[in-house]
Design a protein around this nucleic acid. Structure first.
Ligand SMILES: [Mn+2]
Ligand SMILES: [Mn+2]
Ligand SMILES: [Zn+2]
Ligand SMILES: [Zn+2]
Lengths: 142, 142
DNA sequence: ATGTTTATGAAAATCACTTTCAATGTTCTT
DNA sequence: AAGAACATTGAAAGTGATTTTCATAAACAT
């Protein structure tokens, strides 16, 4: 799994004529070892604890690179901070978000997905992506 | 319809001990006459064209007031700008967004809504709100 | 080893708001 | 109608998240 992601990045770097750096490797390691929905701030603090010399801007830039390379995806929940999650080949899911403690639960529902496709089709839309988030209180918070 | 919204606002203002002002009336008129999903920037520019003396901050504050009064709702699409839409009693809908021209189409799908409730319940979540947006190309753009 | 090009860190800039504050307007009390 | 009490306003400053700038440092092809 981690091997696959590392290869995705090094292939992308090679393909685009970019350069492999210690910072990118470090940030990738922390990203791969992280919770599935981290904000830049959270990731930066973790990275920073071990590598105090890595800059804020580099973390931002590197996460964007991961998105381009296809190993991360940006998500925006209702809290105004961009989060990044792991992308796995052929997998899609949506989110339940606890408005009290912030817990995020992933779910897949093929029936909903299919109905979304039908909605798009019935309005003549060529669907590219969709976003579906359910906000409420998780079991621990009610 | 517009009468209803105006009354909603004046009732809210009375109930909270706030004050009725020329600015609030003007902004409400423009909001009610507007497209259903306007950004503050767009609304401000329209208002500004007729009333060059109304400030940016007032438009921001007033739209927040409309939300509190229950006649507008904030929505965030993927473009980083808050938009405000009209709220109508007992009505709920989700959105199709054209990634090319920005067109927004509203839709309701009770089956999807019901499945969302079931997903939440199956994970022990007490649902508060949800957000569902389908992004793609509208009929004109493909 | 050198040269060319990309990456980095720190600081400044940007973007979309939000807050501050002195001046002004609205409503209440007389 | 006048004054007091309080809310609202516009302009400008402040925020918080993110992005850009730019001089310096690393990569890596030759
Ligand atoms: Mn996820
Ligand atoms: Mn709508
Ligand atoms: Zn919770
Ligand atoms: Zn379109």
């Amino acid at each position: 799994m981690k091997r696959v992601k590392k290869k995705l990045l090094s292939d992308f770097i090679a393909r685009k004529g970019l350069k492999s750096t210690r910072q990118r490797d470090t940030i990738l390691d922390f990203f791969l070892a992280s919770d599935r929905h981290m904000s830049i701030e959270e990731l930066y603090l973790k990275v920073r604890a071990k590598h105090p010399n890595i800059g804020y801007a580099t973390v931002y830039r590197t996460l964007k690179l991961f998105v381009e390379a296809g190993l991360a995806r940006e998500i925006q929940f209702a809290d105004g901070q961009t989060r990044y999650e792991h992308v796995n080949e052929g997998e899609h899911h949506d989110h339940l978000v606890c408005t009290h403690c912030g817990t995020i639960v992933e779910f897949e529902n093929p029936v909903i997905e299919k109905l979304q496709d039908e909605v798009a089709k019935s309005h003549g839309f060529l669907i590219e992506t969709h976003k579906m988030e359910i906000y409420g209180l998780c079991p621990k918070c009610h």
